[in-house]
Design a protein around this nucleic acid. Structure first.
Lengths: 344, 344
DNA sequence: GTGAAAGCGCTAACAC
DNA sequence: GTGTTAGCGCTTTCAC
């Protein structure tokens, strides 16, 4: 029985420590440490006795104490994103996890739900646990509060969006170019009246993609009617009203560009109950896009690659690389499937 | 400048400690501790000086050291599942995260990729970090290695599958009943020759669901031809061969039951290139199932509820509840959408 | 109100 | 080969 049983609360059973193992095996503390850490300089007989005691007591080294003493890295990284359940982010997470694992690091995850206060709390909690680094999909708020952590050696990388108030490595999608390519594709099919539906423009990616649409239209010298643009959360009511406006009136659109996959899906659902069949290109791919009655043409992002790159950048910094701060743009890929190639 | 700068490695900048703050503010260590932890008994003037020093140095309390000294819980839980990128698990994760958050706990996540060695390594790493509890989607391997951790007060809950070699709270889907309901639904449409495609039966859920199919068929006194059952990883080739067998010969099936959503999707893709249109019910819902050319009837699981229940059970144990070990079965829900109601 | 000293579980440094 | 000591950054205890 560990000798510190009474010091712990009633509910938390005492865990055996190296001291307990040493006592049980009749050896010194350092010998146990040597055996646990596979260091040389212990006779096989002694080592066997120690292993026996470890087994018997169910001892497991307390890495918290080890880390504290060593003052070294904690071999853990924190990942903060908008919503772990969103397919885009869950793919990104998985990629981050794989890279972290390959570097021997554990992964702490948290969803900010687009709430700056929650994001901040998560980030600071992670830092208090002394994660080696932080990979963040930042909300729009200022991130100056992380400056002391950065100065103290916590690596930070932002992904999907740039972070404001902090200069760190960043991995983005080529949002403007991607949307412009999608819109250009529609234009090449003969469309001139093209509507755009995107997310709340306070979100960096939403604003960038909208800008890509405007650029592509301006490039051809096409005017954009006010009723052709609708920005906001991808909710059924908003989408319905927006499509009402876009598809009726004197200048109805003949094609639609959607700014993200939630919007694309909401638009498809709404279109199902209408007679019109506008051409459609979605930004960001989604499962079964190719199986729908009219397979959906998309501008695909690569969330796994983004996660991998972000994690690689992080570990590069942790390895001590002092290279200039990087800003990577991952290219998109146009995937024609049918909805974007509908005749005018 | 912190006074322990030289003791740290070159790459890792020294972080200011309470000692540094105390020196900077010209107060004792304990006074800093009081201010940091919001304890009473510090004059406002002193507190202000301390806060100033904290701000200036960019001090952040090291929770690792705090936890070590307190010997209390670490306010962190570990989640081990098959693949974070799988929608089923990412929804489950998000629910676990929300519950953990509401209890003030951080979440460590890891994907086992169905590899027992990897799962074991993750679990033990988490335990070495002294997580308060572990939520596991266990592989088939024996989990006796967790017994010492359980004895030492680490709470363990298994979810989606039962764990072998350990008696812990478990949250499962009503696999047999769910599949039986789906098959019964097909039978009520007049089908008698119903095929079943499921995952590798070494996986608990795959075996249970197959049993549910057999039960439902036996209940009606219907024989099952050997060619009607195909179990294995949901890969295109295997699915193709299986459907070849099921849809031809003297006793072709008129309906299909699919054991999980990966299989359902693979089957739908394969059927797209065939003339036959068997009725189909899938186990586990998936996004856009309702938007496909023939909307897909499914037996829906509730991954978020499963995650929430598992986490609640975990925190209940951590609160010290000594109730008997529980085994919860979350009911499924039949969602008729068309594919399961096709005429014979 | 304030602070000095001890110690959480471990490892580093240096005995023997 | 093995053990002893000090100390990581913090909280606890107890003295002033």
């Amino acid at each position: 029985m560990p000798d510190n049983a009474e010091q712990r609360g009633f509910e938390i059973p005492a865990r055996p420590t190296m001291k307990d193992v040493a006592a049980a095996a009749g050896v010194g503390l350092k010998t146990v440490s040597r055996v646990v850490n596979g260091e040389s300089g212990v006779s096989e007989a002694t080592a066997a006795r120690v292993r026996g005691a470890i087994e018997e007591l169910g001892f497991r080294r307390n890495d918290g104490a080890r880390l504290l003493r060593q003052g070294s890295r904690t071999s853990s990284v924190g990942l903060i994103l908008e919503d772990l359940a969103d397919p885009f982010y869950s793919q990104l997470s998985r990629a981050v996890e794989d890279v972290a694992r390959s570097h021997g690091s554990l992964l702490l995850t948290g969803s900010s739900a687009e709430d700056p206060a929650r994001e901040r709390e998560l980030a600071l909690d992670f830092c208090a646990r002394r994660v080696d680094g932080l990979i963040v999909v930042p909300t729009a708020a200022d991130h100056g509060f992380l400056a002391p952590e950065l100065a103290a050696g916590t690596a930070v990388v932002s992904v999907d969006r740039p972070v404001t108030g902090l200069t760190v490595d960043t991995v983005l999608t080529a949002n403007r170019r991607g949307v412009a390519e999608g819109v250009g594709h529609l234009i090449r099919q003969g469309h001139r009246r093209i509507g755009y539906l995107g997310d709340n423009p306070a979100i960096f990616t939403a604003a960038e993609r909208l800008a890509g649409y405007r650029q592509a239209m301006a490039h051809e010298g096409y005017e954009i009617a006010v009723s052709w643009v609708a920005m906001g959360k991808p909710e059924p009511v908003g989408i319905h009203l927006a499509l009402d406006r876009m598809l009726s009136g004197p200048d109805p659109v003949t094609a639609l560009m959607c700014g993200n996959n939630r919007t694309t899906v909401a638009v498809l659902r709404n279109l199902a109950s209408r007679p019109e069949r506008p051409a459609l290109v979605g930004f960001d791919d989604f499962e079964l896009a190719d199986m729908l009655p009219v397979p959906v043409t998309v501008v695909a992002q690569d969330p796994a690659l983004m996660g991998r790159m972000a994690a690689e950048l992080l570990f590069r910094r942790l390895r001590g690389e002092r290279a200039q701060v990087q800003r990577l743009e991952i290219p998109t890929r146009l995937v024609p499937r049918g909805s974007g190639e509908l005749p005018l």
